[in-house]
Amino acid sequence: MPSSNMQPKIRIDNLHVVYPGRRGEQVEAVGGVTLDITDGELVCIVGPSGCGKTTLLRVLADLEQPTSGAIQMLQSNPERPLKGTVFQGAGIFPWMTVEQNVAYGLKLRGVPPVERTATARHWIGEIGLERFAQAYPAQLSGGMQQRVGLARAFAFDPEVLLMDEPFGALDAQTRLLLQQTLLQQWERRTKTVVFVTHSIEEALTLGDRVCVMSARPGRLLHEVSVPFARPRDAIALRTDPRFSTLFAEIWDVLRDEVDRARADEVAG
């Protein structure tokens, strides 16, 4: 639940990201995004593909530098890591067992071995992979690997969790199950989440707020507050009449942008 704290957890102020394109031209990926995110909020960002939403997330994760504008992220507990990331396509290390992968962030933080193994075990249990704790990723299916990626982020326990289309590459059923898992874990231990996706359903299922981004250069076009009560059920939500109303509202905004992104791709 959004806290009453006056200062936002994350403040994005007129953020621009420009990088050189293939022919030496300047490509503006993010074109002036301003957004405040409250502590404990789950914000979903949707937009047409190539709209710069991933770039935005990468800037938040410190993997890229903004060209102009600023980002502020408030750390409330110096004992806890400020941010952690779940990557598109798991990004788990093939040379580590499931347990080692899940414990990775803790190891870098200097958590002693016994404690980090216990924490890792706990999260492996939460995602239902006890039997595979000592398996290597090559032995797991794509969905299982993505669960390991989730467990790794949860075990790291950052104040801000950045998620970049984590379920994008999965089939519909696995996706639903993982959304359910994420909802359960997030509702149990609230943290600020920025979740990037191209799926409107996913954004509505998970988010407190859905931000719609424009085609490149990405700007915020529209914001929707999602009214569904928590705890949520990812499947039951679909039958709520408000779900389709909101879906239509977002799609209206998005359709033009998708068309524009298409046209850009054809032209460029």
Binding site: D62, P81, G84, T85, F87, G91, I92, Y104, L108, F156
Partner: peptide, 12 residues
């Protein structure tokens, strides 16, 4: 290079 990014995002 993705693996390096993952590691860095966990503070490596």
């Amino acid at each position: 290079p993705r693996y390096f990014e993952v590691a860095r995002s966990f503070g490596a």
